[in-house]
Amino acid sequence: MQKPKIATASLAGCFGCHMSLLDIDDRILKLIDLVDFDKSPVDDIKEFTGRCLVGLIEGGCCNEENVRVLQEFRKHCDILISVGDCAIDGGLPALRNGIPLKECLTEAYITGPTVYNPSGKIPSDSEIPLLLDRIYPCHEVVKIDYYLPGCPPPADTLWQALTALLSGKPIDLPYELIKYD
């Protein structure tokens, strides 16, 4: 029988959540026994090869590229999980949410005290995805089925959640594994 597939992505995140996934240590071998990894930075597969059981999303949406990837994940995954605070509430990047985009970019590229930018312009290249007006938590863009909070979520949280899902059980985290930091 074919193994179920898992896909992962890091949107506006710091890869901390992916590090936490690797932090399940030797259990990663068991995980490989249970599943195949599809599109993911873990195996560097860039495009979906087929339908996935689970998609793990790290980070919220800060630009149009994030939105595109997230929507693609929604299309390809039966179960989509927001992993980590950034995916759930925007996290650190969402500190810009109260500030108009123009002000953010002006400070970042022109007026900031450490900026060296003789052109005096905000960079604009068609290769650079356009920023959104603010950070959007993933569930504001697509339907999310589960949330695993933490910055990053403890490795045990990820392990327990995945093994529960793979055995068709509901995710039921003990007290010590629900963390927002």
């Binding site: 630009n63 985009l101 356009l130 920023l131 007006d133 959007y136």
Partner: peptide, 10 residues
């Protein structure tokens, strides 16, 4: 709506 500001700036 979400990309409008950026479209104007860029």
């Amino acid at each position: 709506a979400a990309v409008r500001d950026a479209e104007i700036i860029a």
